[in-house]
């Protein structure tokens, strides 16, 4: 139908809008000399290699990955019991805990960041590398909380009923039925928190900005004190990480459902 072309045009225009900055930084990182020209002058993959060979960038990358892994683990460890408790028990007051888990993500991030700064400065731990792990862990609780809550909602309570009738206790049920069913949602929640923590700047900056360089902090410092194509190549690398992680979530899970659509079966 000819009526389709405005729609195609609109979608393509938005695709270009979303892709353009990434294409440009991918190109900029190919420059032969230390310049941010586009189209690139000369061709070199050296700046991409620098992410792993340059000591400073590699250290920042290691810091980012370690912080993100530990923070995502903390987020999941906080989110899963909340979701489980709300699913298992009738306890309206426990909703308060849920709201506290969701709040940091709804409020402007600068608030969580400033709260973290006040807290770590007051307790005397300001600047310790592990403080950012905890603050990120709290900051991103909402992501696994949303996915895992969704996971529990998909469990057919009759299955649990059947298990109970056959004499299984809570612990057995949790291990043999409940956990396997929500596991994909836990993994997605972990993935979301991991990727967002990798990219998070303001909380990291206000907690360990002067003692531990993560990739976003290092890119920001490079923006201020001297551009180098490495900041472009590392950005492209981060885009790839995000796409691969979310691609995997989509590959092994139902991404549209995870994001709130009916699942394929429900559509009928």
């Amino acid at each position: 139908m000819s009526a389709h072309w405005p729609k195609r045009l609109f979608l393509s225009a938005l695709a270009v809008f979303l892709a353009l900055p990434i294409i440009v930084i991918a190109g900029v990182a190919l420059n032969e000399k230390k310049t941010l020209a586009f189209p690139p002058e000369g061709f070199s993959l050296g700046w991409y290699a620098q992410v792993f060979t340059d000591e400073g960038w590699r250290a920042a990358l290691v810091h980012s990955v370690l912080v993100a892994t530990a923070a995502a683990a903390i987020s999941v460890s906080i989110a899963v019991p909340i979701a489980w408790f709300l699913w298992r028990r009738v306890a309206p007051w426990a909703r308060i805990v849920e709201v506290l888990g969701l709040a940091p993500f709804i409020l402007p991030p600068v608030i969580t960041a400033l709260g973290a700064l006040s807290f770590w400065a007051t307790t005397g731990f300001y600047g310790q590398p592990w403080t950012v792990v905890i603050s990120h862990g709290i900051f991103f609780v909402s992501l696994p909380l949303v996915t895992v809550t969704l996971g529990f909602a998909t469990i057919d309570r009759e299955i649990i009923e059947a298990g109970m009738t056959m004499g299984a206790d809570d612990r057995t049920l949790l291990k043999t039925v409940v956990f396997p069913l929500v596991r994909p949602y836990i993994i997605s929640g972990f993935a979301f928190a991991f990727v967002l923590s990798l990219n998070e700047y303001i909380v990291a900056y206000m907690t360990v900005g002067f003692t531990l360089e993560t990739i976003p902090i290092k890119i920001f410092n490079a923006l201020r004190y001297g551009y180098t194509p490495t900041m472009a190549s590392v950005s492209v690398f981060f885009v790839l990480v995000a796409v691969v992680v979310f691609g995997l979530v989509a590959r092994f899970g139902d991404l549209p459902k995870l994001l709130g659509a009916w699942s394929e079966g429900d559509k009928g």
Binding site: L18, P21, F192, L198, N199, L223, V239, V243, F246, L255
Partner: peptide
């Protein structure tokens, strides 16, 4: 959705840098 999540999770630092280059 994967593309949108990819852009959404991008650091503000990276977005700022990419657009300032663009």
């Amino acid at each position: 959705l994967v593309a949108l999540l990819g852009v959404l999770s991008l650091s503000e630092v990276i977005i700022g840098f990419a657009w300032s280059t663009l």
